[in-house]
């Protein structure tokens, strides 16, 4: 088939970045990243059931710099996906779909993600050192 030089819809790099589209992309990206994180969750539970040595290995990995960076990434993704997921559920009730509410909700999601991440890490690190 020969393709006609028909007008195409603009691609991502043509569109101006805006909060709504960025948050939408981040929702999907954080979901994929969290799916990878479930492997860590299962590794942790599996190691705990296998015995003290495997469990100590997981703990050592999570305590390392790489482990902590990965944990931090997963915590941000979890809180973001959670907050934005609630935003989606709210939309599903047919509410908050006007432009002003969509933007207000978007900023609220970012603020919520930052707040929850900060609280979780302050509490977690305080506990970790004990």
């Amino acid at each position: 088939m020969t393709s006609d030089p028909r007008p195409l819809s603009p691609h991502l790099q043509i569109y101006r970045w805006q909060l709504t589209s960025v948050l939408s992309i981040l929702h999907r990206a954080s979901g994929v990243w969290l799916a990878a994180g479930t492997i860590l969750l299962v590794w942790w539970l599996g190691a705990a059931s296998d015995g003290p040595e495997p469990y100590a290995r997981v703990q050592a990995f999570l305590g390392s710099w790489l482990g902590r960076i990965l944990l931090f990434g997963w915590s941000v993704a979890l809180f973001y996906h959670l907050c934005n997921g609630v935003r989606h559920l709210w939309w599903d009730t047919g509410r908050g779909l006007d432009l002003k509410s969509v933007y207000a909700g978007g900023w609220a999601v970012l603020a919520g993600t930052a707040a929850l991440t900060a609280i979780a890490w302050i509490a977690g690190l305080a506990n970790w050192s004990h």
């Binding site: 469990y55 959670l82 506990n127 970790w128």
Partner: peptide
């Protein structure tokens, strides 16, 4: 998604409480 809202928050609290805990405590 609805089920995961409370479950995920619960997991976060658990992970914070068990951070650095040894296996005996976890088990």
């Amino acid at each position: 998604a609805l089920a995961l809202v409370p479950l995920a928050l619960w997991l976060v609290i658990v992970v914070i409480e068990l951070a650095g805990a040894d296996r005996t405590l976890f088990v």
